[in-house]
Write a protein that binds this DNA or RNA. Structure first.
Lengths: 337, 337
DNA sequence: GTGAAAGCGCTAACAA
DNA sequence: TTGTTAGCGCTTTCAC
């Protein structure tokens, strides 16, 4: 291991000078800075993370708590995790991965061990057990998703309620009179993950306001679950011409089923998905969609904790405005036969 | 922050005693152990990770390098990452997440900073740039996937060549005479990620040995790419009745396309996927598949590095034997019309 | 079976 | 603009 002391000796300066060159916390003459940087490069020096953390009480690590579940769309989580990691690196931080297997006590462990300077929580439930611990330990944190009580917390999320509204409006604008929301698996609603309920609320409200008959059905990700959900919807309300899907795993199945049922998209039925853009463009026809901005959500979460570490108060909600991109899967409602 | 010294004072023992209670590196009387553990619990003590790393030169962290790409099946990666994290915790270690965005130099940074005691690399390419650095820094590491030169390395992977053989045999046993392998996206082959090429090699060899006409086509994950691939296969060899798919994103599309083309599965065409079990059981019909044991791959990788940290030599390959589970999507070859 | 004390490599006063 | 030095909280030898 190359140490800071060795760099100092090699450059003919004191250890503190090397430290300050690295941290930029005091001004250094151009000449010595050069020599130090030269020595660092020549010796291949990297500061010892533990020593640095011990001396400065800053680990330069952000803990990311991801869910173990696989019933929510995994690629979105992965995109968020990647976005968090690359953004964190850009701020000189690394990311420690924690799974919910460890339970809420992971919060205590991280807070008590100096393992991380901040935490980012994903898959936040309305009554999330980790939140009291967050408050109690006074941890720097950002949440992706909204709990019931957000007081004192910094949260980022897509404005799913607005997404529901946007979806309903799009279908209403196209003249649809009977619409259905094919949602997340039932387990997601049962554990009160906010996003699903908020989408539903927005969709219902606006559908009612626009005078559309509307239905909502949770849906699993398998082909059979999708088939069952679709057939139950069409049984209950055969005139349904507009479908909103908030379950990306069901998307390809739904398109296949409609095709098979002889319902052409978008001529006979419009499909609108709430999903990442790449899912939308990889379908056929390409899907009109409200995109889930995974990259931005991850980035914003990191920016929130970095701001807090810099002393700012970031308490509050960042609700990203949803955007709808019309692609080939939605069109004017067919005239009743 | 509660420190070890405070625990010692509270328990009326010396700091070293507390340390030894924690590490178990020397025998402690039952009485003092109890008192110390009591104090630890009462004060809510957690050892400071940085201090411990500094003093012991062991961070108790494993670095996990994941790819940024999204052209290989993301859920498998996620399952592996989760398996690694939970297994690592079981061994008292945490996981640091690194993306390939940082490039091969991430290896140098981790090795030089004491950030992690070991590294696990995913998405290993045949000529992976990180490997020379691994050798050069003498890092403790495990690879998930096989590079061209595995000398001195510890690797885990599914035996994809055997998987290809197994797939070919299954179709041959069912009497199929013309078969096709619908593979990973072309980019995967171009960057020489070993698994795709190894599957292909095994499949080709055994198909030839069993006297089956065989075709191989790379395939993107979109509906259109799948449709194009399928139609080109059927154009070139209309009598194809057996399909092996090594691209999970294409699976639902392929099933939809076959259905649409009036080819019943498994009566008219057999489909065999190389994919995780849950993808296979969520399709309709459920897919005969060679499973990708993500959980085991992650767990084995952690066990490899833990063994190395304990001083064992784990050099060598662990090739997990593939298992084929017959489900509803494969059956006897139809009699030629 | 237990304690005392010397660092581990770095940061950040304090001094100059 | 730079150097000196006292810790940060833990592990681990050495001593009893």
């Amino acid at each position: 291991m190359v140490t800071l002391a060795q760099v100092a000796r090699h450059a003919g300066v004191s250890p503190s000078t090397v430290s300050y060159v690295l941290s930029g916390k005091r001004s250094i003459s151009e000449a010595t800075r050069r020599r130090v940087e030269q020595s660092i490069a020549e010796l291949g020096y990297h500061p010892h993370a533990g020593a640095r953390a011990l001396a400065s009480s800053r680990s330069h690590v952000i803990a990311l708590m991801i869910p173990l579940r696989t019933d929510i769309y995994v690629p979105v989580m992965m995109d968020i995790a990647i976005s968090i990691t690359t953004t964190a690196r850009r701020h000189g931080h690394d990311v420690l991965l924690l799974t919910s297997e460890e339970g809420p006590s992971a919060v205590k462990r991280v807070a008590g061990s100096g393992l991380a300077d901040a935490m980012i929580l994903m898959d936040v439930e309305l009554a999330d057990e980790r939140i009291p611990l967050l408050r109690q330990t006074g941890s720097v944190a950002a949440l992706i998703g909204l709990p019931a009580d957000t007081s004192g917390l910094s949260c980022v999320d897509l404005d799913f309620e607005a997404a529901g509204v946007l979806a309903a409006d799009h279908l209403a604008d196209l003249g649809h009179r009977e619409v259905a929301l094919i949602g997340a698996p039932e387990t997601v609603y049962r554990r009160h993950t906010g996003f699903a309920e908020r989408t539903l609320a927005g969709f219902r409200r606006r559908a009612a306001e626009r005078g559309m008959a509307h239905l909502h059905r949770p849906c699993g990700g398998s082909h059979e679950a999708t088939a069952g959900t679709l057939s139950r919807i069409l049984e209950e309300r055969p005139g349904t011409t507009g479908f909103v899907v908030q379950n990306e795993a069901a998307v390809p199945h739904l398109l296949g089923l409609l095709r098979q049922a002889g319902r052409a998209v978008p001529e006979d039925a419009s499909v609108l998905a709430i999903c990442p853009d790449d899912v939308a463009v990889h379908s056929s026809p390409q899907l009109t969609s409200v995109s889930i901005p995974a990259e931005e959500m991850g980035r914003r979460a990191v920016e929130l904790v970095m701001a807090q570490l810099a002393g700012e108060d970031t308490t509050g909600l960042i609700l990203l405005a949803p955007t709808l991109t019309a692609r080939g899967s939605s069109g004017p409602a067919p005239h009743p036969a």
